[in-house]
Nucleic acid binder design. Structure first.
Lengths: 202, 202
DNA sequence: TTTTTTGTTGATTGACGAGTCAATAAACGT
DNA sequence: ACGTTTATTGACTCGTCAATCAACAAAAAA
């Protein structure tokens, strides 16, 4: 039965199973056995391919991050103006995909992991830097020197709004979340126009 | 040896020990044994007073929340103007106490708990509602009808900035965090003044 | 064909942990 | 003095789980 080239197949199966199980448990209290079973193999095989539980978690984190990255890239691809790029980033960050139980759980638990596991912290800061760079790139043409600080608070606001929406009771409303962030953006841009002494109507 | 009236003493000792241990572990992967040992008693006694691990965690969460609440109340007590109340809330939210390892760890893990443990979610929403009410009360005299939405994003921004600062490498800088939020507030108030068609200088 | 590499698992090991219980003891009420 | 309540723990039960290992199977290389 042993077909060759199983490694990548087994690994992605394990990663997906891990994310599902984390979603089910709501925590990292997930056994290798549960993961392996969901992925359709023995625990021994999971250890064989990943070496240990922590590495499985890190692979899952990488996967979540890459999904998010892909979504952002996709949204940016269709945006032409800087302003549209900003909207695209915000929209993508609050897409329904990001509010799936497993994804929320993954994020929250990765925050926890990032406290103590250096690999996790590194991954998280990669995400933050990428988001920051994207925001910066879109903001610079609009607000020039103030781009840095606006990008900073915009990034934090996205995280904060996501956190609240994800933990609120009832189904998550990405639309409403996006609106909060867009409003913030509008306020900051308006303030920029004011300090530039431009009437800025049309 | 059994002195009477031990219950409250033992309970607070356990709660404090729990928070320390959560800080040490960076997660809720903390055994009742560790907690009991740090609190200077046997595991059996911990179970005797709290009934189970989950209830110990909830008590710890209540404690963290009450510390935060006390700090907010203290800061508000000295504020006279609405604007000063807002500053006080922001400052208190980013006080050094809130960036201690144990406190950060507690918050992050309570977010995780809130996903699955109803009691934890309830406590978290108590915190959110209290913060919201405080912000609202301070904002209403300044921006009237727009208080609701500004309070919403202000609350989210506080959470988001806290999250980032707490997870950033190096020592946390509450001062810088507070400034980000204060800047946001300034932008929103400026926008409000603009839409009210008032020049608003002094 | 023999050997090596790759895939795969059941069974086992070794450790740890939540919660229970019986037993001990001091204080309190009467 | 005596029964009751409160405090306290060591020892134990029962379960779980990460990680390892020996062994088997098939494909590829030699």
């Amino acid at each position: 039965m042993p077909k060759l080239g199983m490694e990548p197949i087994r690994k992605t199966a394990l990663v997906k199973a891990t994310i599902v199980e984390i979603g089910r448990a709501g925590s990292l209290d997930v056994t290798v056995g549960q993961i392996a079973k969901r992925a359709g193999m023995s625990t021994a095989l999971a250890h064989h391919y990943f070496g240990g539980k922590e590495q499985i978690f890190l692979a899952a984190m990488r996967h979540i991050l890459s999904l998010y990255g892909a979504e952002i890239r996709g949204a940016l691809a269709t945006a032409t103006t800087p302003r549209a790029r900003l909207e695209a980033i915000v929209l993508a960050s609050f897409s329904p995909a990001n509010f799936r139980r497993e994804v929320v759980s993954a994020w929250l638990n990765f925050y926890v992991l990032a406290q103590t596991v250096p690999g996790a912290r590194r991954l998280l800061s990669v995400y933050q830097r990428r988001l920051h760079a994207n925001l910066l790139h879109a903001l610079r043409p609009i607000v020039g020197g103030r781009a840095e600080e606006i990008a900073l608070s915009l990034g934090a606001l996205i995280d904060g709004v996501y956190l609240r929406e994800a933990l609120s009771a009832g189904p998550s409303d990405g639309r409403a979340s996006a609106k909060v962030v867009q409003d913030f953006l509008a306020a900051e841009l308006l303030r920029f126009d004011m300090t530039q002494q431009k009437g800025a109507d049309l």
